[in-house]
Design a protein around this nucleic acid. Sequence first.
DNA 1: CGCCAGGCTTCTA
DNA 2: TAGAAGCATGGC
Length: 280
Amino acid sequence: MKFWQDKRGIIIEIKDFVLEQTLDCGQCFRFSQRPDGSWHGVAGSRPITLRALDNNRILFEKVSIQEFNSFWRIYFDLDRDYAKIRSQFPCHPAFKDSVCFGHGIRILRQEPWEALVSFIISQNNNVPRIKGIIERLCRHFGKPVGEDYGFPSPAALSVLDVSDLEVIRCGFRAKYIIDAAQKVSCGQVDLQEISKLPLSKARQALQTIKGVGPKVAECVLLYGMGRLETFPMDVWIKRAMARLFPGYTPDSFGQYAGIAQQYIYHYCRCNPWVLREETG
DNA sequence: CGCCAGGCTTCTA
DNA sequence: TAGAAGCATGGC
């Protein structure tokens, strides 16, 4: 990855980074494409607008070298060699198709708290509505940053009760969000500490929060804590494993199973016909 | 309208 | 202890 400063911001030159694939593959919920083709969103309390200049160059609008190096470079996982990682995955026809389709995906390094709340909201829900709920959560309870709103802190949500959350229309998940906010803000759940624990301990600690089960915990570890060996198993991945990868387990994909999982998830969501019985 | 949504908790046998 | 029902809301 190469980068340099420009009057418009930071320009990077990189392989395997496609904005649509990375920002609209179900790992984050605060980005959307604007009519002019750029992608705008907020990570934590940092708004950003990105624009593809050509196949290998992306503009980070109005970003300084300092902010790029200290935050966005890590957030977008820009220093990782995805091609090298892909070369270590098992050879399998359907997997090759998945990788080809979504080669521009990068696993975002989101804030643990934001990932936790986002994936609590995601349960038994659909992506357009998840985005709407999170948008309302930020508008009502987050701090304004320019035209946008930051993600509300654990402390800010810990003082609310279930009825306060009615405005975001998240349904039965409200009590789970409150419980997470209380446990994190009082220190009963320490997300920084959890991020460094062995996997089984980390999963166990996350699941002490109401509404956090195996799948949500795995998403927090993968998207919010950089634990790329994790492998969230939702209904789509279960179907894909049964139909496309019989005999395979998460372990089959090795230490970067989480990246493999994301290729498979995105491929199946965009091409659901590959999971039909008659096509195997 | 009915089915489903990047599940989890609670109830039941 | 496994399996099903119930859960809020709304996208399609």
